[in-house]
Every structure is written in C-alpha cells, then in structure tokens.
C-alpha cells in the first residue's frame, strides 16, 4: 500500500495533478518519471520524510513498493532510535 504522503510528494515533484501509484508501478509507467527526475524524486522523498537513502539502497529500488518499503524501514529506524 502506497501512503498518501508518499504519493503527494512524488506527484508534486513531477508536477502531476494525478496518477495511479500502486506497489507494482514502475517509473516508466508514470509520466515524467525518467532517470533524471528519479534523482529529484529521491531527494524530495528524503526531504519530506527526513530520511537518507544510501547509494546501494537507491540502486535496489525497482518499483513503488520498494520505495514505500524503504521509507517505512527508515522511519521505523528513526522511531526505534528515538524510543
């Protein structure tokens, strides 16, 4: 399940009004999501959720579900640290 916040961040970065984003959605299915805008999307997601992705983490992302899982994992790490 892709969170509404993550969807909003991506749509805003791509300047899109709407687009269906499911776990199995890949970049090539989303208007404007190419290799260059991918970088901007990762930066925007990092900024919105106050997390950082490493090179290898970014490399392993294959679809929206992977990105959501990575964000969730990072947020959990932050939460565990502050607990």
């Amino acid at each position: 399940m892709i969170s509404e916040t993550l969807k909003k961040v991506i749509l805003a970065e791509l300047d899109l009004d709407d687009c269906e984003l499911r776990e199995e959605t890949v970049a090539s299915e989303v208007p404007g999501w190419d290799s260059l805008s991918h970088i901007g999307i990762l930066c925007a997601v990092e900024k919105a959720f106050k997390v950082r992705f490493s090179t290898l983490e970014a490399l392993r992302l294959k679809n929206m579900g992977d990105l959501q899982a990575l964000v969730t994992q990072k947020l959990k790490q932050l939460s565990d640290l502050s607990a």
Binding site: S35, H38, T55
Partner: peptide, 9 residues
C-alpha cells in the same frame, strides 16, 4: 543506467 540510479557508484 546504474549510475543514474545511484550516482555514488
């Protein structure tokens, strides 16, 4: 393709 996904490479 790999570089643009992970420029740090």
């Amino acid at each position: 393709f790999q570089w643009v996904s992970a420029p740090g490479l």
